[in-house]
């Protein structure tokens, strides 16, 4: 299993804070995971399949989209940050 977290505007729009997904071909890396999520349609497709900037983190570090996922990984998706 992998854990997927959503923050800020994504969490609100998708009405999802976190979920667990099976680790398989559809979650092999971050690009694949985004495709899987956008296939859910509607807002999921708008957010993960469109031009929106969505940042990804893998195990709490900013991640590139081709990074491979493994059992127990924590992936997070969020909009560009606005702290400070």
């Amino acid at each position: 299993m992998i854990k997927v977290l959503y923050f800020a505007r994504l969490r609100e729009e998708l009405k999802t804070e976190s979920e667990e997904l099976e680790l398989d071909e559809s979650t092999a890396d971050i690009i694949a995971l985004k495709l899987k999520l956008s296939a859910r349609g509607d807002l999921w497709n708008e957010i993960f399949g469109g031009d929106e900037t969505v940042m990804a983190a893998l195990n709490q570090e900013v991640a590139q989209s081709d990074e491979k996922l493994k059992e127990g990984d924590e992936v997070a998706f969020f909009p560009p940050v606005t702290g400070g």
């Binding site: 800020a8 997070a76 940050v81 606005t82 400070g84």
Partner: peptide
Amino acid sequence: YLKTRAPFWKK
């Protein structure tokens, strides 16, 4: 760096 790299979001 904090402004662009630390995961905070303002509403």
